[in-house]
Design a protein around this nucleic acid. Structure first.
Lengths: 206, 206
DNA sequence: GCTGTAATGTAGTGGCTGCACCAAAACCTT
DNA sequence: AAGGTTTTGGTGCAGCCACTACATTACAGC
């Protein structure tokens, strides 16, 4: 129902749908959803507006298509590794290391989902997705903390909440008011925190 | 140059300037700067647009006037007490307690300055103010941590950075995607963190 | 009451927004 | 070649935006 690959008649598409979605994703990610006009999209995708509306229906539906792609990307790069890992705090540490890279690449634009949360939770479709993503991430933190031997379950919940808050803060810092160096510093501060939670040793080499 | 109280001729103002700024502050705080149109202001302040533009010059200048008032308020309520306190971590704890109240009152609208940081750092005037505010708050955390006996100076800097990140995260959580209860939970998670940093005792009674 | 001055209400500016309409174009099948 | 189907480009719409031009109004000083 979503991607109809070949039709049996009619004028062929002059563009690759996936490439167009990727380009839209780039714009939405960089500028935000509201700040990106249909004219911006027209220019960046190299497609007339009528083609965009014919292919996607509305600006919001195009955003949803972009979000589908984005969620798969960030899932593969960040969340799923955290969920699937057998480690505890070490997995969280890896997550933040990867997050730092994710957040700072290509002119620091933060995480698109969290950006959308901060920008436009008014669209119910979008708000639902951001809420789901947040819940998933917090539970991944929680599970990882419980995997760590010597961490008592009561504090695991509070600490997961703290980590989730830190992720939100890092994202804001990434988007505005912080250069890449300053941002790496902030991420380092969060990772430093994890040392205090590692029951046995302190400060793995680097 | 800013507030000319009495003029020696001409039609008198039909409104109290300070009240108008307060009303504008309320709108900007609640809805954000961009989302608040000059028509919204007209309706809320009970003043025609020509009066608004005559009195303030532009929407941005009105925001700056509102920011002046807001900065004084939040300074008195949150930042200055933290700066002036003789305590260390206890002062930080007090700060977050006050922040929780500040952030959740009247339909949880976060901190206006941090909202502006997340929303529109494009206006250079505004970006400068948010950056200044961030710097001030981080240094207040840093100073408080150094006041705490038994906290080594090297970690004080990293921890101040972490606290600043947490404040940003709490603010986002306050604005979107979290109810007041959930938010209090998040603030509690941050305050819980402070216990780990208190060298001597753990868990003050409540 | 006249004059100067400043605030007001009304109306309108150009520009941007998301989106719709429609005829022409480019393909398929028959 | 004809008919059917879908995409495309061009044009335009109604609505909102921040902001302004201007004539009118309400005051103070003389």
């Amino acid at each position: 129902m979503t991607t109809r690959q070949r039709q049996l008649g009619g004028r062929p598409r002059s563009f690759e749908t996936d490439q167009a979605v990727d380009a839209a994703l780039e714009l939405f990610w960089l500028q935000g959803y509201r700040q990106t006009s249909t004219r911006d999209l027209e220019a960046r995708l190299g497609i007339g507006q009528s083609s965009i509306y014919n292919a996607f229906g509305s600006k919001l539906r195009l955003l949803e298509a972009a979000l589908d792609r984005y969620e798969r990307q960030i899932s593969d790069a960040l969340v799923t590794p955290l969920e699937r890992s057998l480690d505890g705090i070490a997995a969280i540490d890896d997550f933040f290391a990867a997050l730092a890279a994710w957040i700072t690449t290509d002119g620091r634009r933060g995480c698109m989902i969290l950006n959308l949360m901060a920008e436009s939770a008014d669209e119910p479709e979008i708000g639902e997705r951001t809420r789901t993503y947040r819940r998933r991430l917090r539970e991944a933190f929680h599970a990882a903390l419980q995997r760590e031997p010597g961490v008592d379950p009561a504090s695991a919940e509070v600490r997961a909440e703290l980590l989730m808050t830190a992720v939100l803060g890092l994202n804001i810092a990434a988007r505005e008011g912080a250069g890449p160096d300053e941002l790496r510093h902030s991420v380092g501060a969060v990772r430093h925190l994890l040392d205090d939670w590692t029951p046995g040793q302190r400060r793995p080499p680097a």
